[in-house]
Design a protein around this nucleic acid. Sequence first.
DNA 1: GATGAATGAGCCTTCATTCAT
DNA 2: GATGAATGAAGGCTCATTCAT
Lengths: 184, 184, 184, 184
Amino acid sequence: MQQSIALFVDKGYSATSIQDIVDALGVTKGSFYYHYKSKEALLMDIHRQYIEELLARQQSILQDAAPAKEKLSEIVRLLIGDMEKQGPIANVYFRELRHLKEENAKAIRARRAEFREQIESVLIAGIKSGEFRRELNPKMIAFAVLGVTNWSYQWFQPGGELSTGELAELYTDFILHGIMPTQK
Amino acid sequence: MQQSIALFVDKGYSATSIQDIVDALGVTKGSFYYHYKSKEALLMDIHRQYIEELLARQQSILQDAAPAKEKLSEIVRLLIGDMEKQGPIANVYFRELRHLKEENAKAIRARRAEFREQIESVLIAGIKSGEFRRELNPKMIAFAVLGVTNWSYQWFQPGGELSTGELAELYTDFILHGIMPTQK
Amino acid sequence: MQQSIALFVDKGYSATSIQDIVDALGVTKGSFYYHYKSKEALLMDIHRQYIEELLARQQSILQDAAPAKEKLSEIVRLLIGDMEKQGPIANVYFRELRHLKEENAKAIRARRAEFREQIESVLIAGIKSGEFRRELNPKMIAFAVLGVTNWSYQWFQPGGELSTGELAELYTDFILHGIMPTQK
Amino acid sequence: MQQSIALFVDKGYSATSIQDIVDALGVTKGSFYYHYKSKEALLMDIHRQYIEELLARQQSILQDAAPAKEKLSEIVRLLIGDMEKQGPIANVYFRELRHLKEENAKAIRARRAEFREQIESVLIAGIKSGEFRRELNPKMIAFAVLGVTNWSYQWFQPGGELSTGELAELYTDFILHGIMPTQK
DNA sequence: GATGAATGAGCCTTCATTCAT
DNA sequence: GATGAATGAAGGCTCATTCAT
């Protein structure tokens, strides 16, 4: 899975052949098919593992008895910190959904939606508690938060100007400013 | 080009064959190669046309003698409004860069960077003029702005809850709140 | 088609690869798939062509105003004579039906059944006219006639002890003796 | 062997994989190769077992001191009755000979020829004794008898209009009529 | 006796591209 | 401008077989 992720990131799922994968591992094609039923099954495994872990970690954030502000920051940190920990898997995750069979894609899409809805629920809680502005559209803001963070996967280079930690702080700040009421 | 974009959006560049394209048009493969040197040349044309138009429209926004705030809003509107006008082309644009030859990819990446740097320059101008907060990192905010807008291409459905116009307003508001100084 | 029949006869459909076929023709695999949609499509074409010709020739025999005895002999001659004319195609025809998709197999089986039913109808006519014995089961006798003739394809060697013509005479005689009433 | 016969009948030898066989049994491939040296060895075993049993039973028929007429009827009954007893094995027997190595195929073909020659010898004896018509070609009639009976394996459905016993009577009658002299 | 993992060859099919007409 | 036919390479997958455990 690790090797295949690296290759999918580099060349894309369709352009990566099973041969590429097994060559990188020094095994043979037959061996691949002993462990995976198909190329798509491998892709599905990558998707599943990624979203499940993300959801689990999000869950543990939500259980804390912390203000919405705090929870949202944690989720941003979770998503951005992941670039380092989970590495390039997120890249595959965002780009290659379409190569799953509809049946599988649906399952993943559903789990993704759950993740987004949890963000939405934090936003709603924050609006109720007065932490966030009353006039926000929580669904669209949830998408915006995901946009800011996920887009990083397209350009962020570990070892560049900023660490993931610094970037997370920067974006937490930007997002909270965007949604908290103007102070009097 | 139109037909091929539709197919690339649907199945991805690699998974779309020349046969798919010509079948959709009711012509033959030979004919394709009369008009395009290669499959990659077609992809390059799509990329080029898209970014050039975007840059041109951005240019005309920058030439106005308007406050930075205004210019930034216009750029957000430009990007989001495009989902309707240019439709799915942006999708190809964001996903299939990697299938260009390095030489071509470099050219496109350079133009994309220009677009981002122009946003950066608007942000810098705004900071200087006091419209935006002094402590912002303009480069990262430019990326954030692109994240918010470009991410929409992943989930926005024309004819859904919001129009592109409404979404643009919503996001302009979110972004400006995120970067303007807290009012006293 | 000719080459592929020869190979299918020799090694069987499954054991014959497209490579085998195109090698025998001095062309390339790509070329094969330009002309046939799939290996199974080729097999279907062979089946279709064979049974259709057989049915057409049977039809022309049935239209004659001849006694049932005569018609049955003609049909035996048709089937046995074919070994020389159509050669090995019949072999494929009898052995490889199972490799057609159910949908295609059904179509072929239906046409085969028609052929048999025509034999049955000759038998019934002969029974009615008193040419054949009253107590015969026409369906089973039709199968028996097909058994006698089709089985030849398993062992008959052109250029052996007998010509197809002689064999046809021999079998016509055997069959007619088997079904005509005992003379007083 | 039982399971493999069922699969060979259904899909053909080439199209049946070892995996198919061991899956049907709930064991593993390694296990198959503990018991059989190769896929072909299994096929050979099937062939051998079938023809040897047939020959043994034919032998016991031949030893009876009965008229040729009687013996031939017994052999027809043996062959047709087998559809019920031995079931689908005969199907494999007739179709998959070609997948044996030449060396093995030769051995089987030789035993098959013996079976046919025994029928021939019954025919010759019957001709000599005046039971059968003088002008018959015993070899060709032996082939015809095998055709009538073996062809049944292609279409006979247990539980259909006729039992194997009834079919055997019907065909015995047809064949004897075909070869016995016309009564005065 | 049986298993799980691996192998290498081969299979059917698809593909981007070419080119004579 | 367009077509039909061909090509060679590659792609996903299956297979019979092997072997250490």
